[in-house]
Structures are given as C-alpha cells and as structure tokens.
Amino acid sequence: MSEAFIGTAIRAAAYADEAALGDLDRRTWSPLHTVQPRPEPPYAPFFDERHLPADFLVAELDGRLAGYIRLVQPTHLLSNAHVRQIQGLAVDTWARGRGVARSLLDAACERARSERARRVTLRVLGHNAPARALYSSAGFTVEGVLPGEFLLDGVYVDDVLMGKTLSSEV
C-alpha cells in the first residue's frame, strides 16, 4: 500500500493481529489522547462488531508491528458516504520518531481516495500538541473546537475537529 520510509510497510489488519494490536493499544494508552479510563483486566477484545479488521491499517517496521490507524465512515448515512474519519492512531514507543504515524496517515488518505471519499476528518484532544502538529503537517486543518468537551483528571479539555479535503484524483 504505502512505503513512505525504508523498512515501513502498511497493510490491512487481519484477525491474526488481534493480540498484538490489543497489547499495543494497552501499552500506548495515555490521557493525552484518550477519554476512556486505562484498560484493566479482563481486557475487551480489540476487534468486535464495531471494530473490524477491515477498518484498520497496520504498520510494520523492520518486520515488527509498529502501529495502527482506524479509518471508517463516520455515519451510515448516504449523504455522508463521501467522508472517512480517523478514529484511532497508535504507534509503539520504540517506533516513534521514525515516520510510522505519517506513513499511516498517508496510507489512510490513500485508502479513502481509493474508496472515492472526498474528505477525511478526525477528532483530537486540544492538549495533544504532538498529534495536532502531526495532523497539521499532513494537511489537516482545524474545522471546529468543542471547548471543554471532556473533563479529564479534573481539567476541562477541548475536542478539536480537524479535516482534510482529498484531491479529486482516484
């Protein structure tokens, strides 16, 4: 699919990735990017009826699973079928700073284009400066802010809505 950096390969997720993705998701949990409490045993399955392997792209770096991105239609409405939404992005600690997140973003936009989507949107917590910088560098712009949308550890945090219009080339 995409190989933006030497040794980085992006592919569709498979059910066989479930254990590794669940482990990655738990290890990368942070109040910087999630509004959910820290996962505790017994852990919920990574894949379920709302989170299918087809929704995920995974990055492998030097043959190891390094990260994932989830790309879905934001609603089931026909009038919204031209939009894809990123609903999760995680990169393992050992792989950070090596272009994995950017490769995943580029591959997600490529997939959205191949599905004839015209826009990709996402939501990011206002205090997550590294993610916001990444998304901005990839061409996403702030399209709205829900001030104080979440109360996290006693602090009100903004929900920032970002979007990117895709080129019409398919």
Rank of each mutant, 00 (worst) to 15 (best):
I6V: 11
G7F: 04
A9V: 11
V91L: 07
L71Q: 02
E3F: 01
A133E: 12
D48G: 14
L146M: 15
L32C: 02
C109N: 03
A16R: 14
R113P: 02
R64F: 10
G126E: 07
K164R: 15
T93R: 14
K164G: 05
H127Y: 02
R64A: 13
R111T: 00
R96I: 02
R96G: 08
P74W: 01
F46R: 14
D55S: 12
Y135S: 07
S30I: 08
C109L: 02
L61C: 11
G88W: 12
I69N: 00
V72Y: 07
G99V: 06
A13Y: 09
A131E: 06
A117V: 04
E18H: 09
V124K: 04
Y43M: 12
V155T: 15
N128S: 07
M1W: 02
G139W: 14
V58Q: 08
A133S: 07
G22I: 08
Q73K: 09
G67C: 09
Q73T: 10
D106R: 00
A81V: 07
E115I: 01
G67V: 11
L71A: 03
G99T: 05
A107Q: 03
G163E: 08
S103D: 13
P41A: 15
R27L: 12
H127N: 06
V100E: 10
R96N: 05
R50T: 12
G154M: 12
A54N: 11
H51M: 14
A112L: 00
R113F: 01
V157Y: 11
P39F: 09
L89Q: 11
W94N: 04
V155W: 07
F140D: 06
A20M: 11
